[in-house]
């Protein structure tokens, strides 16, 4: 109890603050999370990188990747099936569309349990990374 006062008075470090707000319209986030447009080439590199976790579950048009998951639909043709705004919401917080989904929310820090100290208070991907991936997925027409 003695400690609670002073501790609470210390300002939160930037990483522990709530993420900037975004507006959900229907099943989409129509507005980009950043002012700069995403870069599809960077987005592709992110999607196939193991630490981004996408290809643990998904497969897609990445013939050079030997290990791809089969827990989720193929990412091929994402841009034909979904608008950029719809893809953005699926990445930011897929649980808004399907509360039982196993797909992690990539841009969310609240409502999580026992997050490891390395990752606590940080979203899985940054706003820039989300925009890069949205640009890449949007380019997958077939």
């Amino acid at each position: 109890m003695l400690l609670a006062g002073p501790l609470l008075a210390v300002p939160c470090p930037a990483s522990a603050q709530a993420l900037p707000p975004y507006a959900v319209v229907g099943d989409a986030i129509p507005e980009p999370l950043t002012s700069a447009r995403g870069d599809a080439a960077r987005g592709r590199a992110l999607v196939v990188e193991r630490s981004s976790t996408c290809i643990l579950c998904h497969s897609g048009p990445f013939p050079e990747q030997k290990f791809q998951g089969d827990l989720a639909p193929s990412l091929a043709g994402s841009g034909r099936r979904w608008s950029e705004g719809q893809l953005r919401l699926r990445l930011v917080d897929a649980s808004r569309l399907n509360a039982a989904t196993i797909m992690p929310s990539y841009y969310r820090v609240d409502g999580l349990h026992r997050v490891g100290t390395l990752w606590r208070g940080k979203p899985i991907l940054s706003a820039e990374q989300i925009e890069d991936i949205v640009a890449y997925l949007g380019s997958l027409r077939e």
């Binding site: 643990l56 290990f67 998951g69 992690p104």
Partner: peptide
């Protein structure tokens, strides 16, 4: 059953619901 961590998954999500699948390789 408890979902946890930054990836927000519970053991059951993989080992009860998806044991016939592959996580990457």
């Amino acid at each position: 059953l408890q979902r946890q961590g930054q990836l927000n998954l519970g053991c059951a999500n993989c080992h009860d619901d998806n044991w016939d699948k592959r996580l990457a390789g």
